[in-house]
């Protein structure tokens, strides 16, 4: 009896040794990563010195224009099956009408990149998360597709992928069974391009209704625009401190 116990201990010690060995190899690439991390932004972890955000100037958003929506689809390879109820939508056009005055306002609505995101609060797996630079996104490696986050989001910003995806862009890997939403073109930002596809397309169409940038940098285009224009958060009553703000509503 005692002999077999001794053997077990030996085995465990060998096992522990092996485990530590394995951990060392695992850590090694990480150490390596940091030693060459000086080369460029691409190789540095993001920090909270930046908070990405956007101002939507609804007075400039044109009726019938869908430049931002189309650009998002192209950029992220969002395929359309002609089934609007389930097709993925990261950004959509909304028209609001004041029934008393009859005034109509157009605006694009997407993930508002909340500082206190309810989608992250409810996610049971930790797949929904907020990056240090304020981007709220889904880690599809961990998402189990429960869709709690879709229920929690007050902006109806998230989509569940119901169908197999034929074209999977290298920039935006995506697949069936996960929830996804606007990630402020995170691949562009990580590559040092501080401009989203939607804002770029809006400017190209001549409307300039979307101003993107770093909310923490007082000189960024978005901070400058926010200083000039009166703006508000949609559903400010929820106190989510959104990264996307609207003026003219």
């Amino acid at each position: 009896m005692s002999k077999s116990k001794g053997q077990t201990d030996m085995d465990r010690r060998t096992f522990m040794g092996l485990t530590v060995g394995a951990a060392a190899t695992l850590v090694a690439p990480g150490v390596f990563l940091h030693s060459i991390a000086q080369a460029g932004d691409r190789e540095q972890p993001v920090t909270d010195k930046v908070r990405w955000g956007m101002l939507v100037d609804t007075s400039k958003c044109a009726n019938g224009c869908s430049a931002c929506v189309d650009a998002c689809k192209t950029e992220n390879g969002l395929s359309n099956h002609g089934r609007p109820a389930t097709d993925p939508t990261w950004i959509r056009k909304v028209k609001v009408r004041d029934n008393f005055t009859g005034r109509e306002t157009n605006l694009p609505l997407m993930c508002q990149h909340c500082e206190f995101p309810p989608c992250v609060d409810v996610c049971p797996t930790g797949a929904s998360f907020k990056r240090a630079d304020g981007i709220v996104m889904v880690d599809r490696h961990v998402c189990i597709g429960c869709r709690y986050c879709m229920m929690a989001c007050p902006y109806k910003a998230r989509s569940f992928i119901h169908e197999d995806i034929e074209i999977k862009p290298t920039n935006a890997p995506r697949g069936k069974g996960c929830v996804e939403s606007c990630n402020l073109c995170v691949h562009r930002l990580d590559n040092g391009q501080a401009m989203t596809a939607c804002a770029e397309a809006c400017a190209k169409a001549g409307h300039n209704a979307l101003v993107f940038g770093d909310l923490k940098d007082p000189n960024s285009p978005v901070s400058q625009a926010l200083k000039q224009l009166p703006s508000r958060q949609i559903r400010a009553d929820l106190q989510l401190s959104t990264g996307v703000r609207y003026s003219g509503i």
């Binding site: 990563l33 991390a37 691409r42 540095q44 972890p45 990056r131 996104m137 880690d139 490696h141």
Partner: peptide, 16 residues
């Protein structure tokens, strides 16, 4: 290893 660094921290070292 790099998958988590990339998704969570935006580290996109081309090599790995």
């Amino acid at each position: 290893h790099q998958r988590d660094l990339t998704v969570r921290q935006g580290v996109r070292v081309q090599k790995d």
